[in-house]
Design a protein around this nucleic acid. Structure first.
Lengths: 134, 134
DNA sequence: CGGGATCCTAAGCGATACTG
DNA sequence: CAGTATCGCTTAGGATCCCG
């Protein structure tokens, strides 16, 4: 970086916070889409076939399930095993890395549970105040 | 549900996993958008004004920063304080709840750091193999 | 300086139809 | 049963302009 000293305090805070969040942003792009965490969550219960997954995840389309699984496989979070039988059969299971993701996800889920009622209340309050302001 | 008994074992696994992930899905819809966690991360360093935030978060548009802050304020994660001076000045800071979110986020960030090189490697390997397959 | 409103493009995603 | 390709709708989100 070619800038030696440039308001160290505010910039440092920002840079630090941004650095912390940058990696986070990357993985939220990965995990924060519509279906990925559902797939990880369901697969944490054990190996499943494609159609079983689709049945287990309400609302997911054939297409999106396939794309989500490709992405997870590409990142080494899910292992795909296909059997050349008729009819064909494909098993999906979490890899070691996939299981390791499940842990921080549960931490987040715990936070969600503990805060969801408070958040709902906050929203309601915010909305009525916004409504009064017109 | 009008179907009484329908392969209890597989369904139970799925239902459990889905239940775990449902709350998670809610908060990822909240937190998993393009800018929210960046804002939370930067604000974890302390109170900031609107334009300081925009400078601290590379690439965020005026519009999206405003929307993100509105959302966070609505959920009680960020507190907004405006001063009726000229020029006007608005401070943003994390609330108690906002800070509490920062904790599980750091857990996720730690996972991201520990896995990002492995994921990158996995992607590269997957891509070359896909390339060979055409 | 903070924050709307409007416009417009690109990306996400479901539906459908087709292959092995 | 598993997977891909095409189509078309819907949305997210950047650019821009205006107002207090």
């Amino acid at each position: 970086m070619p800038q030696p000293n440039l308001q160290p305090i505010e910039i440092d805070y920002a840079a630090e916070g941004a650095a912390n969040c940058k990696a986070l942003g990357q993985i939220l792009d990965r995990v924060g889409d519509k279906w990925t965490i559902m797939v990880v969550g369901v697969l944490s219960g054990g190996t499943m076939r494609f159609n079983a997954l689709q049945r287990a995840i309400p609302g997911v389309s054939h297409r999106m399930l396939a794309m989500t699984l490709r992405g997870l496989e590409r990142d080494g979070l899910v292992k795909r095993t296909s059997f050349a039988t008729i009819p064909p059969r494909v098993d999906y299971e979490l890899t070691e890395r996939g299981h390791s993701l499940h842990v921080p996800l549960l931490t987040l889920a715990a936070w969600a549970r503990s805060q969801q009622s408070g958040i709902a209340a906050s929203r309601q309050q915010y909305d009525v105040q916004a409504e009064q302001a017109d």
